[in-house]
Amino acid sequence: MAVKEVICNDPKEREKYKEALIAITVDESLKRYCQRIGRHDFWGGESELLVLSKLCKQPIIVYIPEHEHRRGGGYGSGFIPIAEYGAEFRGGWGKGNNKKNVVRLLYSGRNHYDLLR
């Protein structure tokens, strides 16, 4: 609902999320997107992660299972990062208490993500 409010309800605020707007409007009009995002069966994806990372000032890294990355098969038990959002919010040395823990998500196909702990 936070993404809907920012992208669909506030044209001035929407301008802060140009990267997400581009991703959204590649496949559909903004009007159509705003209709769909309000439905209970809407699943978020990359566009929503772009907005949420910035809106919440939260670093997010998306992973896939290692075995899905290998073309020749194999049974790796690790995870490979495939996307990172909000890296600027990670903090670091000398920045005091501004450091945020990264939210790690496992991408499970199409637009489904699970929290990776």
Rank of each mutant, 00 (worst) to 15 (best):
L105V: 04
G94W: 11
E46F: 06
Q58W: 03
E48V: 06
Y85S: 00
L30K: 09
G73C: 05
I80K: 00
R70F: 00
D114N: 14
I24Y: 01
G96L: 15
L106D: 12
W93D: 12
V102R: 07
W43Q: 10
V62G: 02
V102K: 06
P65W: 01
S47L: 00
R36P: 03
E13G: 02
E46S: 13
Y107F: 15
G73N: 02
A83M: 09
R39S: 09
R70Q: 05
K95G: 15
S47F: 01
E15Q: 07
I37K: 01
I22T: 14
I82L: 11
Y17P: 05
R36I: 12
N97C: 07
G74I: 11
L105N: 13
V103L: 14
F79C: 02
L116T: 03
K100Q: 14
G72R: 12
V102E: 10
I24W: 01
A2Y: 11
V26E: 13
R14K: 14
H67Y: 14
W43A: 09
L30I: 08
I80D: 00
V6L: 13
S108T: 15
E46I: 09
C8M: 12
C56Y: 10
G92W: 12
E66M: 03
K57V: 07
I22C: 10
H69N: 14
R39A: 11
H69Y: 14
R32K: 08
L30E: 09
A87V: 12
Y85R: 00
N98E: 15
S47H: 01
E68R: 05
S77N: 06
S108Y: 08
I24T: 04
I37S: 03
Q35A: 08
I61R: 06
L116I: 05
R32M: 00
G72M: 11
D27C: 04
N101Y: 05
S29R: 02
D114Q: 15
E48C: 03
P65E: 13
L50P: 00
G94Y: 10
H67N: 08
Y17W: 04
P81Q: 02
D27S: 09
V6Q: 04
Y33G: 12
E28N: 04
F42P: 01
Y113Q: 04
G74T: 08
K54E: 15
H67L: 06
R70P: 00
N101G: 09
M1Y: 02
